[in-house]
């Protein structure tokens, strides 16, 4: 079964993806969020504005579309800037945990002697509750953006490593790997051209999910006060700040909360669409 699917033609996944309208809509939503967060502040279309006691907790209206916070700053402007950090952390975690996970997974799957020790470490790490592990790491090393990214990468790398290891074990036994060895191809080249190339799709799907999980985890950490430095706004920090005014200015947590929900949801749907598109066994009947 596994052999048959890896021997399949590379799917033209653009076609497959665009047969799934939900995934396309989600992708558009996510791209819009990213574009808004990075382009609008850069073009000077929004600004946070100085603090102003007079304007504190202004409800959404003509002056402040999404209202003003407890210091009288524009929520919309802050939301977009905070999005840069939140999205940046998500992307950073997805990239770093994938890179680390691929390395560990390939080594564990390829070298039998290292498989047992590495797999036990992976199991042990996955046994920790995600947020608890990240929380302790950030508490130990300090709350900078880089440390949050690294801590969350440590949390999520085992997921990638597991998938990579399992796929490597299957592909390692396929005749084309044996052919490569007979042709004198060296092991690192075999690992990259023959194994990694054939397992990129499950990794891509998983990385998309990790992007979403990491944004959620970052929001959770920030909400708990152990995320990045509170002077750098993130969506989680904004929710945390708004918590105090929940009875008078509900919109303070509504908008950053909605931003988190919308980006995570759209990423998850994109991930689902990718998985369906790349794995023909899950293909929907059309």
């Amino acid at each position: 079964m596994a052999a048959a699917s890896t021997a399949m033609a590379p799917p033209s996944f653009r076609n497959l993806l665009f047969q799934r309208p939900a995934a396309v809509v989600a992708l558009v939503v996510f791209v819009l969020i990213v574009a808004a967060c990075f382009l609008l502040p850069m073009l000077g279309l929004t600004e946070i504005g100085g603090m102003s006691v007079r304007k504190r907790l202004t409800p959404p209206g003509a002056e402040y579309w999404l209202g003003a916070d407890a210091f009288g700053r524009d929520v919309l402007g802050r939301l977009l800037v905070a999005g840069q950090t939140s999205l940046g952390i998500g992307l950073g975690v997805a990239v770093i945990s994938s890179a680390v996970g691929i390395l560990i997974g390939l080594v564990a799957g390829f070298f039998r002697r290292l498989d047992t020790p590495l797999s036990r470490v992976i199991d042990a790490m996955m046994a920790f509750p995600d947020i608890l592990l990240a929380l302790s790491l950030v508490a130990i090393f300090g709350g900078t953006m880089m440390n949050v990214i690294l801590a969350l990468s440590v949390v999520y790398a085992p997921r990638i490593a597991r998938i990579v290891r399992a796929s490597t074990l299957v592909i390692r036994e396929l005749p084309y790997v044996e052919a490569a060895r007979a042709l004198g191809t060296r092991t690192p080249t075999i690992m990259v051209t023959h194994v990694l190339r054939n397992i990129m799709s499950p990794i891509l799907v998983q990385a998309t999910f990790i992007f979403a999980y990491a944004m959620l985890a970052e929001a959770g950490l920030s909400f708990l006060g152990v995320g990045v430095d509170p002077r750098t706004p993130t969506w989680g920090i904004m929710v945390n700040e708004g918590r105090q005014y929940i009875d008078t200015a509900f919109f303070l947590i509504l908008f950053p909360g909605a931003a988190i929900a919308l980006s995570v949801l759209s990423l998850q749907i994109v991930g689902d669409g990718l998985r369906d598109a790349l794995d023909p066994r899950l293909a929907k009947e059309t």
């Binding site: 890896t6 021997a7 033609a9 396929l174 005749p175 044996e178 052919a179 051209t193 054939n198």
Partner: peptide, 14 residues
């Protein structure tokens, strides 16, 4: 050198 039995799985599809 070696020539394999299954001409599909002995060629990397990518």
């Amino acid at each position: 050198q070696i020539i394999f039995q299954d001409p599909m799985s002995s060629l990397n599809p990518r």
